[in-house]
């Protein structure tokens, strides 16, 4: 539709709005309708603390990074509730797989966040960006950057970890019973989460709104947007390149590789900072 098919997304939006929402017989009605809303609302809530320029955030709170971690750990509820409320064994099994996956990778993301906090000495996202004025954290913390990027894919259920919905082998996993706008809300939530995770990766590792090479005449908000786009490109690049992981390999990678690696790196970072005297004093 339209030039280069640009009107297709709008046509799709109208389509999902006007379709009928089917609630399966025996489904838990209120929970069934609540789950997609919860997924989408949680994905949007997390944006409140992302700083787009020096101090420009909806809520520049002291514990911003903990808030983000808390919100992203709630994402699993939308999925579990959707799977259970559908009253279908396929949806339920899909929800179980998805929830186990998200819970597993959250642990290593948590340790990555802790090692970043250790370097900055603050839980405020704006302080984390400011701490990267000399060097972005993706260079000294390269192993953690890689762990974060891969865990990010698993956390948002994207390829090559898209087992919960795996469109070539399952029919949509946990949201198999959903239709119309409730179905669309899951996808909107998933894509919002992807952009959110890209923003988090840019804030934690790519210097957020900081301009590289002293190019400060371009405003910080443009830099952050550019960095988000680069990480989003990584998402699609990976999706087009790698085959899907098998479930046991996914669990092995999460628990036996990333968890020990991120723990080890955390201890190493703490030792390094302590012995070189670089440990930040942090806000009093």
């Amino acid at each position: 539709m339209g030039p280069f098919g640009l009107w297709q997304p709008f046509a799709d939006a109208v389509k999902v709005f006007t379709k009928e929402t089917i609630i399966p017989a025996g489904a838990s009605r209120s929970l069934f309708l609540m789950a997609p809303m919860l997924t989408f609302i949680l994905a949007c809530l997390a944006w409140a603390v992302i700083p787009v320029n020096d101090g420009w955030a909806v809520a520049n709170i002291n514990v911003g990074i903990l808030y983000l971690f808390a919100i992203s750990s709630l994402g699993v509820y939308g999925i579990v509730i959707a799977g259970w409320a559908s009253n279908s064994k396929y949806a339920f099994l899909g929800a179980m797989r998805s929830a186990a996956q998200m819970v597993s990778y959250e642990v290593s993301i948590g340790f990555v966040l802790v090692s970043i906090m250790l370097c900055v000495g603050s839980l405020n996202l704006n302080d984390i960006v400011k701490a990267q004025s000399h060097v972005w954290f993706c260079f000294p913390m390269l192993p953690m950057f890689v762990v974060f990027l891969i865990s990010m894919l698993a956390e948002t259920n994207r390829a090559p970890f898209d087992l919960p919905e795996g469109e070539s082998e399952l029919v949509a996993g946990f949201f198999v019973e959903y239709s119309a706008m409730s179905f669309a809300l899951f996808y909107l939530g998933e894509y919002t989460n992807m952009i959110m995770m890209s923003a988090l990766a840019s804030v934690l590792f790519l210097g957020g709104w900081q301009a590289p090479l002293g190019l400060t005449f371009i405003p910080g908000i443009v830099w952050l947007f550019a960095k988000i786009c680069v990480v989003m490109f990584f998402f699609f690049w990976v999706r087009a390149t790698f085959p899907r992981y098998r479930y046991d390999q996914l669990m092995r990678l999460g628990w036996k590789v990333f968890l020990p690696l991120s723990l080890l790196w955390l201890v190493l970072t703490a030792f390094f900072l302590e012995f070189t005297g670089l440990l930040p004093a942090g806000p009093a």
Binding site: V63, L66, F69, L74
Partner: peptide, 26 residues
């Protein structure tokens, strides 16, 4: 106590209650 609030959500809601929900659903 913003730190305690966030830790409550992360630990109890994000981890403990998920396990509760798993067990109760199964």
């Amino acid at each position: 106590a913003e730190f305690l609030a966030m830790i409550l959500v992360i630990v109890y809601v994000g981890a403990v209650a998920v396990l509760f929900l798993f067990v109760v659903m199964m």
